[in-house]
Simulated scan of single mutants.
Amino acid sequence: MTAPWGPPIDVLPLLVREEQALIGVLSDLRTPEWARPALGEWTVHDLAAHVLGLKLRRLSRDRDGHFADGTSWVSACRQLSPEVLFAMLVDSTTQLTELWKHRDLDEPAAAPLWLTVARDYAEQWVLQQQIREAAAAPLLDDPEFRTPVVDTFLRSLPQALRAVTARAGRQVTCSVEGAGRWTLRATAVGWTIDRGAARSRSPLASLATDADAFWRWCSGTLPAAEASARVQVSGDPAVCEILRGLGGRGCLSRFSPR
């Protein structure tokens, strides 16, 4: 049976490079620039703290077997100077790569481990983009960094479509300019996804947008007026509603719990 999540997304070669790119941006900031507004009430400092929290939480759980709830990490990190926070980020660099390269990312599970790694990469990449925009730095927008993020967000769709009953072979298409095309296919036991254009000339539903709009839409930072102009969804109403659910971080919430 074809895996519903589709073929593996290999972000392992990108993890350290993405981390180093973030360190490079933060190293150029003067202390007052860490207080620049970035996302809602969050500053550059808050976003950097969130990145660090994601990494340390993953290391604590998956490397050290430590599971615990706590108070707001970002709020607590506001007590740290930019210099201390930066040093902690530098110290964490490469640790996740070391963790994952010694694990079997294809190990059978409800959701494969490679998807967990890809999801973490996607979330951290989005946060870096938001930091870069707040700091007026160039985006880390090369296709090699951005396309796996688009791919990861779309991998939530087989699970999102599980309640949609369709004849085996019916297709849903997703075209993201600057990233590629994806096709979801109905099977007797659910939906699968794969890279490539659809074979059907009459898909059940379709989504068309561009890569820049897509990641912003999925992370909940694309204004509604822009979303209506830059993200086109058409076809079966029930499927269209699910496709629109990708917006506003809906794609992240549909993966299995981390």
Score class of each variant (00 low, 15 high):
M1W: 01
G70C: 03
F153M: 12
G250R: 02
F145C: 05
V16P: 08
A197R: 11
R146Y: 15
G235T: 10
R146C: 09
E123W: 09
L157P: 03
V25W: 00
C174L: 11
D46F: 10
H66Q: 09
A160F: 05
E107V: 13
H66A: 06
A110E: 07
G24Y: 03
R78G: 14
T209P: 10
R244S: 07
R30Y: 07
I131P: 00
D69N: 02
P223S: 06
F67V: 13
A224R: 07
L54Y: 07
D106I: 04
L252T: 10
D236P: 04
P138H: 12
A136N: 13
P13K: 12
V25Q: 01
D151H: 15
Q129W: 12
E241D: 14
S256W: 05
V16D: 05
L115S: 15
G70R: 00
A205R: 06
L207A: 02
G70W: 09
L157Q: 06
V149S: 06
A213E: 01
W215N: 04
T173M: 05
C240I: 01
S228R: 14
A160Y: 03
G180K: 00
C174W: 05
P158L: 11
T94C: 14
G6E: 01
A213G: 06
P223W: 03
R230Q: 15
G220H: 03
Q130V: 04
P82V: 12
H50I: 00
G190E: 05
L154S: 12
V25H: 01
R201I: 09
Q129N: 04
G196T: 09
L89E: 09
S60N: 08
R254V: 14
L89F: 11
L105H: 01
R78M: 13
A227R: 13
R58D: 05
D106H: 12
A122K: 05
P237H: 13
S72P: 07
W125V: 02
R103Q: 15
K101L: 14
Q159H: 08
L14A: 06
Q232K: 10
L154P: 13
A135I: 06
R61W: 09
S206V: 14
S27P: 08
V126F: 14
R167E: 15
L222K: 07
L115G: 12
W34H: 00
V231F: 12
P257W: 10
A197D: 11
S75I: 10
G180V: 05
I131Q: 00
R199L: 11
S27N: 14
S27I: 02
G53L: 03
M88C: 11
A134P: 05
T94W: 13
V176A: 08
L115A: 15
W191L: 08
I131A: 00
D236Y: 11
L115M: 15
R216I: 05
D106K: 08
A122N: 04
S253Y: 14
A227Q: 02
V11G: 06
L80P: 08
S27E: 15
L89N: 07
V84K: 02
S256P: 03
A122M: 14
P203R: 10
L26I: 03
F214Y: 14
D106T: 10
Q130H: 01
S219Y: 04
G178Q: 06
R103W: 12
P4Y: 08
L26E: 01
A229F: 02
R244F: 07
A48T: 02
A229Q: 05
P13G: 09
S256V: 15
F67G: 02
L22T: 02
F67A: 04
